[in-house]
């Protein structure tokens, strides 16, 4: 998400990229469930990331080649994915009998399941699993790619000054596709972690809007790796804390959504003020020059 923002793209499709990654991970994990963990897990990992990346790259390509606004395409992609998954699980190729009561796929192979690192018996009400290591690794990779590789430099240059980048030989179109693919890859990874760490299968409507939370997290974290981690922890605490507050203190869990919304409003307001200030600020000086 933040990767795409850095390139000046507005990727609203993290939800669908996450779902595609989850479905790919779930399908591969179930189909090749007989393989041992050390072989199965990397395959599932690549499937999740690859599917998210490829799905997002479509929007990137449309933007680069045809000038289609990525906000529109990624939103539309969200709907496509939600309904395709619906079909896949309801009466499509991935339907499997289960005890959940909702349409779901067959469970993934044990080899692909992320181990729980703090068992429920020790600390109740958690589901902390090894996915946290993958998430930390993803943040490190995000930071490294963006700030320590020529590719990251090019992505930032395109995001901050597309025309300057273009005249310097950095093709904004190519980098639009790459940025979307990377963003989709991260979202796909998130979906893959949900499947392998939490649910061990795909079921209908399983992503509680994580992809949309990601937009908020990227905004709050101002697209910097550390900021994104802190923002994600905040939103995670909101989500968990909300249900616990409801159970223990009788505070409505909806209040969390209200607080989240207020946070976002404040951020958005700050952005608007800054854009207005920039418009008014240096322009008159330029006119004199």
């Amino acid at each position: 998400m933040a990767v795409a923002f850095r390139t000046g793209l507005f990727n609203i499709g993290a939800e669908s990229q996450l779902l595609v990654g989850a479905v790919a991970a779930g399908a591969v994990g179930a189909r090749f469930g007989f393989l041992p963990g050390p072989i199965l897990f990397p395959i599932v990992l690549v499937a999740g990331i690859g599917a998210g990346a490829a799905w997002a790259a479509i929007a990137g390509y449309l933007k680069a080649a045809r000038g289609v606004n990525e906000v529109i395409t990624t939103i539309m992609q969200n709907y496509i994915v939600v309904f395709v998954i619906h079909w896949l699980l309801q009466n499509g190729p991935m339907t499997a009998p289960n005890a959940l009561g909702t349409p779901a796929s067959a469970p993934i192979g044990d080899g692909a399941v992320l181990p729980i690192i703090i068992p429920n018996e020790l600390v109740p009400l958690t589901r902390l699993h090894a996915g946290i290591f993958l998430a930390i690794l993803a943040v490190v990779v995000f930071w490294f790619v963006l700030w320590r590789t020529p590719l990251g430099y090019e992505l930032r240059a395109v995001g901050l000054g597309a025309r300057a980048a273009a005249q310097a030989g950095i093709d904004p179109r190519v980098h639009t596709v790459i940025a979307m693919a990377i963003a989709g890859g991260f979202a796909g990874l998130a979906g893959m972690i949900q499947v392998t760490g939490v649910f061990h299968r795909v079921f209908d409507g399983f992503s509680a809007g994580y992809g949309f939370d990601a937009i908020a997290v990227a905004l709050l974290g101002k697209n910097s790796p550390i900021g994104v981690v802190l923002a994600a922890l905040l939103f995670g605490a909101f989500a968990r804390g909300g249900s616990i507050m409801q159970a223990n203190a009788g505070v409505s869990a909806q209040l969390v959504s209200v607080i989240e919304a207020i946070v976002l409003f404040v951020i958005a307001a700050e952005l608007i003020v800054r854009i207005l200030a920039r418009r008014r600020g240096p322009k008159p000086l330029e006119a004199i020059a």
Binding site: R156, A157, L160, G161, A164, I170
Partner: peptide
């Protein structure tokens, strides 16, 4: 618009391209 990425540092703009 074309010569510089204004939000970059001087060092970063020197290596553009």
């Amino acid at each position: 618009l074309e010569g510089l990425v204004l939000a970059f540092t001087v060092a970063d703009d020197f290596i553009l391209g």
